[in-house]
Design a protein around this nucleic acid. Structure first.
Lengths: 144, 144
DNA sequence: AGAATCACTTGCAATTTGCCAGCGACCTAA
DNA sequence: TTAGGTCGCTGGCAAATTGCAAGTGATTCT
Protein backbone atom coordinates (compact mmCIF):
# COMPACT_ATOMS: atom_id res chain seq x y z
CA UNK A 1 0.00 0.00 0.00
CA UNK A 2 1.64 3.18 -1.19
CA UNK A 3 0.90 6.70 -0.06
CA UNK A 4 1.08 8.48 -3.37
CA UNK A 5 1.62 12.20 -3.73
CA UNK A 6 -2.10 12.75 -3.71
CA UNK A 7 -4.44 15.55 -4.64
CA UNK A 8 -4.71 18.45 -2.25
CA UNK A 9 -7.21 17.73 0.49
CA UNK A 10 -9.26 20.09 2.62
CA UNK A 11 -7.43 18.84 5.69
CA UNK A 12 -5.28 15.92 6.83
CA UNK A 13 -8.06 14.29 8.79
CA UNK A 14 -8.67 10.69 7.66
CA UNK A 15 -12.43 11.06 7.70
CA UNK A 16 -12.14 14.06 5.46
CA UNK A 17 -9.92 12.11 3.06
CA UNK A 18 -12.51 9.37 2.85
CA UNK A 19 -15.30 11.87 2.23
CA UNK A 20 -13.31 13.54 -0.52
CA UNK A 21 -12.94 10.14 -2.20
CA UNK A 22 -16.42 8.70 -1.79
CA UNK A 23 -18.51 11.24 0.10
CA UNK A 24 -21.08 11.78 -2.61
CA UNK A 25 -24.48 10.37 -3.37
CA UNK A 26 -23.39 7.79 -5.96
CA UNK A 27 -19.88 6.40 -5.55
CA UNK A 28 -20.70 3.84 -2.88
CA UNK A 29 -23.78 2.74 -4.83
CA UNK A 30 -21.39 1.63 -7.56
CA UNK A 31 -19.14 -0.12 -5.03
CA UNK A 32 -22.28 -1.82 -3.67
CA UNK A 33 -23.22 -3.16 -7.07
CA UNK A 34 -19.69 -4.41 -7.69
CA UNK A 35 -19.29 -5.90 -4.24
CA UNK A 36 -22.69 -7.26 -3.39
CA UNK A 37 -24.49 -7.77 -6.67
CA UNK A 38 -21.66 -8.85 -8.90
CA UNK A 39 -22.28 -6.07 -11.39
CA UNK A 40 -19.45 -5.61 -13.86
CA UNK A 41 -20.67 -3.55 -16.79
CA UNK A 42 -21.87 -0.02 -17.33
CA UNK A 43 -25.42 -1.17 -18.02
CA UNK A 44 -25.55 -3.23 -14.84
CA UNK A 45 -24.66 -0.15 -12.80
CA UNK A 46 -27.20 1.84 -14.78
CA UNK A 47 -29.87 -0.67 -13.69
CA UNK A 48 -28.83 -0.43 -10.03
CA UNK A 49 -32.28 0.69 -8.91
CA UNK A 50 -31.69 4.31 -7.95
CA UNK A 51 -31.83 5.91 -11.40
CA UNK A 52 -28.29 7.19 -11.84
CA UNK A 53 -27.76 9.28 -14.98
CA UNK A 54 -25.29 8.14 -17.63
CA UNK A 55 -23.06 11.16 -17.36
CA UNK A 56 -22.89 10.84 -13.57
CA UNK A 57 -22.16 7.10 -13.83
CA UNK A 58 -19.40 7.78 -16.33
CA UNK A 59 -17.92 10.47 -14.13
CA UNK A 60 -18.05 8.35 -10.97
CA UNK A 61 -16.52 5.29 -12.61
CA UNK A 62 -13.68 7.47 -13.85
CA UNK A 63 -13.16 9.00 -10.44
CA UNK A 64 -13.22 5.65 -8.67
CA UNK A 65 -10.71 4.31 -11.18
CA UNK A 66 -8.51 7.37 -10.73
CA UNK A 67 -8.65 6.85 -6.94
CA UNK A 68 -7.54 3.26 -7.39
CA UNK A 69 -10.75 1.73 -6.07
CA UNK A 70 -11.71 -0.11 -9.24
CA UNK A 71 -10.14 -1.17 -12.52
CA UNK A 72 -11.68 -0.91 -15.98
CA UNK A 73 -10.77 -3.42 -18.66
CA UNK A 74 -12.13 -4.08 -22.14
CA UNK A 75 -14.06 -7.34 -22.37
CA UNK A 76 -12.38 -9.84 -24.68
CA UNK A 77 -15.71 -11.46 -25.59
CA UNK A 78 -17.35 -8.21 -26.70
CA UNK A 79 -15.25 -5.19 -27.52
CA UNK A 80 -18.08 -2.82 -26.90
CA UNK A 81 -18.14 -3.74 -23.25
CA UNK A 82 -15.93 -2.79 -20.38
CA UNK A 83 -15.66 -4.91 -17.28
CA UNK A 84 -15.01 -3.32 -13.92
CA UNK A 85 -13.59 -4.94 -10.84
CA UNK A 86 -12.62 -3.85 -7.35
CA UNK A 87 -9.02 -3.41 -6.27
CA UNK A 88 -7.78 -4.28 -2.80
CA UNK A 89 -8.39 -0.66 -1.92
CA UNK A 90 -11.96 -1.06 -3.11
CA UNK A 91 -12.51 -4.32 -1.28
CA UNK A 92 -11.35 -2.62 1.91
CA UNK A 93 -14.45 -0.48 1.68
CA UNK A 94 -16.51 -3.50 2.74
CA UNK A 95 -16.59 -2.58 6.45
CA UNK A 96 -17.71 0.94 5.59
CA UNK A 97 -20.51 -0.42 3.42
CA UNK A 98 -21.49 -2.96 6.04
CA UNK A 99 -21.81 -0.37 8.80
CA UNK A 100 -23.77 1.96 6.56
CA UNK A 101 -26.12 -0.87 5.58
CA UNK A 102 -26.63 -1.77 9.23
CA UNK A 103 -27.34 1.85 10.17
CA UNK A 104 -29.66 2.36 7.23
CA UNK A 105 -31.59 -0.83 7.98
CA UNK A 106 -31.97 0.14 11.62
CA UNK A 107 -33.18 3.68 11.15
CA UNK A 108 -34.89 3.67 7.78
CA UNK A 109 -37.71 1.79 6.12
CA UNK A 110 -35.84 -0.64 3.85
CA UNK A 111 -36.28 -4.04 2.29
CA UNK A 112 -33.15 -5.50 3.84
CA UNK A 113 -33.75 -9.04 5.16
CA UNK A 114 -33.59 -8.76 8.98
CA UNK A 115 -31.61 -11.98 9.36
CA UNK A 116 -28.91 -10.75 6.96
CA UNK A 117 -28.66 -7.45 8.80
CA UNK A 118 -28.46 -9.13 12.18
CA UNK A 119 -25.70 -11.39 10.93
CA UNK A 120 -23.85 -8.43 9.48
CA UNK A 121 -24.17 -6.63 12.78
CA UNK A 122 -23.02 -9.52 14.94
CA UNK A 123 -20.34 -10.95 12.67
CA UNK A 124 -18.86 -8.25 10.47
CA UNK A 125 -15.70 -10.28 9.96
CA UNK A 126 -17.74 -13.01 8.28
CA UNK A 127 -19.18 -10.56 5.79
CA UNK A 128 -15.72 -9.30 5.08
CA UNK A 129 -14.11 -12.68 4.53
CA UNK A 130 -17.02 -13.61 2.27
CA UNK A 131 -16.44 -10.55 0.13
CA UNK A 132 -12.73 -11.32 -0.02
CA UNK A 133 -13.35 -14.91 -0.99
CA UNK A 134 -15.62 -13.88 -3.83
CA UNK A 135 -13.12 -11.47 -5.25
CA UNK A 136 -10.33 -13.93 -4.89
CA UNK A 137 -12.23 -16.35 -7.12
CA UNK A 138 -13.37 -13.69 -9.53
CA UNK A 139 -9.81 -12.46 -9.98
CA UNK A 140 -8.78 -15.68 -11.67
CA UNK A 141 -11.70 -15.78 -14.09
CA UNK A 142 -10.78 -14.92 -17.65
CA UNK A 143 -12.25 -11.70 -19.01
CA UNK A 144 -15.88 -12.43 -19.86
CA UNK B 1 -36.89 3.07 17.41
CA UNK B 2 -39.76 4.05 15.16
CA UNK B 3 -39.90 3.73 11.41
CA UNK B 4 -41.59 6.97 10.56
CA UNK B 5 -43.43 7.59 7.32
CA UNK B 6 -40.26 8.93 5.76
CA UNK B 7 -39.39 10.98 2.73
CA UNK B 8 -39.47 9.22 -0.61
CA UNK B 9 -36.18 7.45 -1.28
CA UNK B 10 -34.56 6.47 -4.56
CA UNK B 11 -34.88 2.82 -3.58
CA UNK B 12 -35.48 0.65 -0.53
CA UNK B 13 -31.87 -0.42 -0.24
CA UNK B 14 -30.40 0.39 3.22
CA UNK B 15 -27.15 1.69 1.77
CA UNK B 16 -29.11 4.05 -0.43
CA UNK B 17 -31.08 5.28 2.58
CA UNK B 18 -27.86 6.03 4.43
CA UNK B 19 -26.45 7.87 1.42
CA UNK B 20 -29.58 9.96 1.10
CA UNK B 21 -29.23 10.95 4.78
CA UNK B 22 -25.50 11.59 5.04
CA UNK B 23 -23.95 10.83 1.67
CA UNK B 24 -22.55 14.30 1.04
CA UNK B 25 -19.22 15.95 1.56
CA UNK B 26 -20.07 17.70 4.83
CA UNK B 27 -22.62 15.96 7.06
CA UNK B 28 -20.26 13.43 8.60
CA UNK B 29 -17.68 16.16 9.17
CA UNK B 30 -20.21 17.75 11.51
CA UNK B 31 -20.91 14.43 13.21
CA UNK B 32 -17.15 14.01 13.60
CA UNK B 33 -16.81 17.34 15.36
CA UNK B 34 -19.71 16.56 17.66
CA UNK B 35 -18.59 13.01 18.38
CA UNK B 36 -14.83 13.23 18.48
CA UNK B 37 -13.98 16.84 19.20
CA UNK B 38 -16.78 17.81 21.53
CA UNK B 39 -17.88 20.68 19.32
CA UNK B 40 -21.30 22.07 20.25
CA UNK B 41 -21.71 25.48 18.66
CA UNK B 42 -22.02 26.83 15.15
CA UNK B 43 -18.62 28.54 15.39
CA UNK B 44 -16.92 25.37 16.54
CA UNK B 45 -18.18 23.54 13.45
CA UNK B 46 -17.15 26.49 11.31
CA UNK B 47 -13.59 26.09 12.65
CA UNK B 48 -13.55 22.37 11.91
CA UNK B 49 -10.54 22.64 9.64
CA UNK B 50 -12.03 21.99 6.22
CA UNK B 51 -13.42 25.45 5.46
CA UNK B 52 -17.15 24.81 5.37
CA UNK B 53 -19.22 27.80 4.28
CA UNK B 54 -21.81 29.28 6.64
CA UNK B 55 -24.74 28.63 4.37
CA UNK B 56 -23.70 25.00 3.89
CA UNK B 57 -23.17 24.53 7.63
CA UNK B 58 -26.58 25.99 8.36
CA UNK B 59 -28.20 23.78 5.76
CA UNK B 60 -26.46 20.61 6.97
CA UNK B 61 -27.25 21.26 10.63
CA UNK B 62 -30.90 21.70 9.70
CA UNK B 63 -30.92 18.54 7.64
CA UNK B 64 -29.22 16.49 10.35
CA UNK B 65 -31.73 17.82 12.88
CA UNK B 66 -34.62 17.01 10.55
CA UNK B 67 -33.24 13.47 10.13
CA UNK B 68 -33.14 13.08 13.90
CA UNK B 69 -29.37 12.75 14.11
CA UNK B 70 -28.78 15.82 16.27
CA UNK B 71 -30.76 18.19 18.46
CA UNK B 72 -30.44 21.96 18.57
CA UNK B 73 -31.15 23.84 21.80
CA UNK B 74 -30.69 27.48 22.85
CA UNK B 75 -27.92 27.91 25.38
CA UNK B 76 -29.18 29.16 28.74
CA UNK B 77 -25.90 30.92 29.51
CA UNK B 78 -25.88 32.97 26.30
CA UNK B 79 -29.02 33.40 24.23
CA UNK B 80 -27.09 34.10 21.09
CA UNK B 81 -25.71 30.58 21.10
CA UNK B 82 -27.23 27.31 20.14
CA UNK B 83 -25.86 24.04 21.49
CA UNK B 84 -26.05 20.90 19.39
CA UNK B 85 -25.90 17.33 20.60
CA UNK B 86 -26.14 13.89 19.06
CA UNK B 87 -29.22 11.71 19.43
CA UNK B 88 -29.06 7.95 19.82
CA UNK B 89 -29.49 7.79 16.06
CA UNK B 90 -26.49 10.06 15.69
CA UNK B 91 -24.37 8.13 18.16
CA UNK B 92 -25.08 4.97 16.17
CA UNK B 93 -23.10 6.52 13.34
CA UNK B 94 -19.93 5.87 15.32
CA UNK B 95 -19.11 2.55 13.62
CA UNK B 96 -19.57 4.18 10.21
CA UNK B 97 -17.21 6.98 11.15
CA UNK B 98 -14.72 4.57 12.64
CA UNK B 99 -14.55 2.44 9.50
CA UNK B 100 -14.21 5.50 7.28
CA UNK B 101 -11.42 6.83 9.47
CA UNK B 102 -9.62 3.50 9.33
CA UNK B 103 -9.96 3.32 5.55
CA UNK B 104 -8.88 6.93 5.11
CA UNK B 105 -5.85 6.49 7.35
CA UNK B 106 -4.82 3.35 5.50
CA UNK B 107 -5.07 4.65 1.98
CA UNK B 108 -4.51 8.36 2.25
CA UNK B 109 -1.81 10.65 3.61
CA UNK B 110 -3.28 11.82 6.91
CA UNK B 111 -2.17 12.98 10.32
CA UNK B 112 -4.03 10.29 12.22
CA UNK B 113 -1.91 8.82 15.04
CA UNK B 114 -1.07 5.26 13.95
CA UNK B 115 -1.63 3.83 17.42
CA UNK B 116 -5.15 5.28 17.59
CA UNK B 117 -5.99 3.89 14.16
CA UNK B 118 -4.64 0.46 15.00
CA UNK B 119 -6.68 0.42 18.19
CA UNK B 120 -9.77 1.50 16.28
CA UNK B 121 -9.16 -1.25 13.78
CA UNK B 122 -8.57 -4.01 16.30
CA UNK B 123 -11.14 -3.01 18.91
CA UNK B 124 -14.00 -1.12 17.30
CA UNK B 125 -16.30 -1.97 20.23
CA UNK B 126 -13.99 -0.05 22.57
CA UNK B 127 -14.25 3.05 20.45
CA UNK B 128 -17.99 2.69 20.41
CA UNK B 129 -18.43 2.24 24.14
CA UNK B 130 -16.15 5.22 24.70
CA UNK B 131 -18.34 7.39 22.51
CA UNK B 132 -21.44 6.17 24.32
CA UNK B 133 -19.92 6.84 27.71
CA UNK B 134 -19.06 10.38 26.73
CA UNK B 135 -22.53 11.13 25.55
CA UNK B 136 -24.10 9.51 28.55
CA UNK B 137 -22.19 11.94 30.78
CA UNK B 138 -22.76 14.91 28.54
CA UNK B 139 -26.48 14.28 28.47
CA UNK B 140 -26.78 15.10 32.15
CA UNK B 141 -24.82 18.34 31.98
CA UNK B 142 -26.91 21.45 32.24
CA UNK B 143 -27.07 23.58 29.13
CA UNK B 144 -23.86 25.62 29.14
C1' DA C 1 -24.48 53.92 24.17
C1' DG C 2 -21.22 51.79 21.16
C1' DA C 3 -18.69 47.82 19.93
C1' DA C 4 -18.41 42.96 19.58
C1' DT C 5 -20.29 38.32 19.04
C1' DC C 6 -23.62 34.80 17.42
C1' DA C 7 -26.08 32.51 13.91
C1' DC C 8 -27.47 32.94 10.29
C1' DT C 9 -29.11 35.26 5.39
C1' DT C 10 -28.42 36.74 0.88
C1' DG C 11 -26.77 38.06 -3.86
C1' DC C 12 -24.03 36.35 -7.11
C1' DA C 13 -20.95 33.32 -9.81
C1' DA C 14 -19.20 28.82 -10.47
C1' DT C 15 -19.90 24.07 -10.40
C1' DT C 16 -22.52 19.92 -10.32
C1' DT C 17 -26.52 17.20 -11.24
C1' DG C 18 -30.09 15.33 -14.09
C1' DC C 19 -32.53 14.41 -18.54
C1' DC C 20 -32.25 12.33 -22.73
C1' DA C 21 -31.25 12.54 -27.68
C1' DG C 22 -27.43 11.51 -30.44
C1' DC C 23 -22.90 9.40 -31.73
C1' DG C 24 -19.12 6.06 -33.11
C1' DA C 25 -17.70 1.40 -32.34
C1' DC C 26 -18.99 -3.13 -32.29
C1' DC C 27 -22.13 -7.26 -32.78
C1' DT C 28 -25.78 -10.16 -34.88
C1' DA C 29 -29.13 -11.78 -38.15
C1' DA C 30 -30.76 -11.95 -42.74
C1' DT D 1 -22.84 -6.97 -47.31
C1' DT D 2 -26.48 -4.48 -45.13
C1' DA D 3 -29.69 -3.22 -41.68
C1' DG D 4 -30.83 -3.17 -37.08
C1' DG D 5 -29.46 -3.52 -32.37
C1' DT D 6 -26.31 -2.85 -28.33
C1' DC D 7 -22.56 -0.61 -25.71
C1' DG D 8 -20.61 3.25 -23.47
C1' DC D 9 -20.45 7.21 -23.55
C1' DT D 10 -21.07 12.64 -25.05
C1' DG D 11 -23.14 16.91 -24.97
C1' DG D 12 -26.79 20.70 -24.86
C1' DC D 13 -29.66 22.54 -21.74
C1' DA D 14 -32.11 23.56 -17.39
C1' DA D 15 -32.28 23.02 -12.55
C1' DA D 16 -30.02 22.50 -8.28
C1' DT D 17 -26.18 22.96 -5.25
C1' DT D 18 -21.91 24.91 -3.64
C1' DG D 19 -18.90 28.55 -2.26
C1' DC D 20 -17.60 33.44 -1.15
C1' DA D 21 -18.18 37.18 1.64
C1' DA D 22 -20.84 41.21 2.93
C1' DG D 23 -24.82 42.19 5.59
C1' DT D 24 -28.54 41.59 9.33
C1' DG D 25 -31.12 41.28 13.83
C1' DA D 26 -30.62 39.60 18.44
C1' DT D 27 -27.77 39.34 22.32
C1' DT D 28 -23.74 40.37 25.25
C1' DC D 29 -19.90 43.12 26.92
C1' DT D 30 -17.36 47.38 28.03
Amino acid sequence: MRRQEGPSRRSRCPLNASLEVFGDSWSLMIVRDLMLRGARTFNEFLDGGEGIATNILTNRLQRLAAEGILIKARSTADHRKYLYRLTEKGIDLAPVLAEMIVWGARYEDTDAPPAVIREMELHPEEFLSQVRKQWKNRRSEPGG
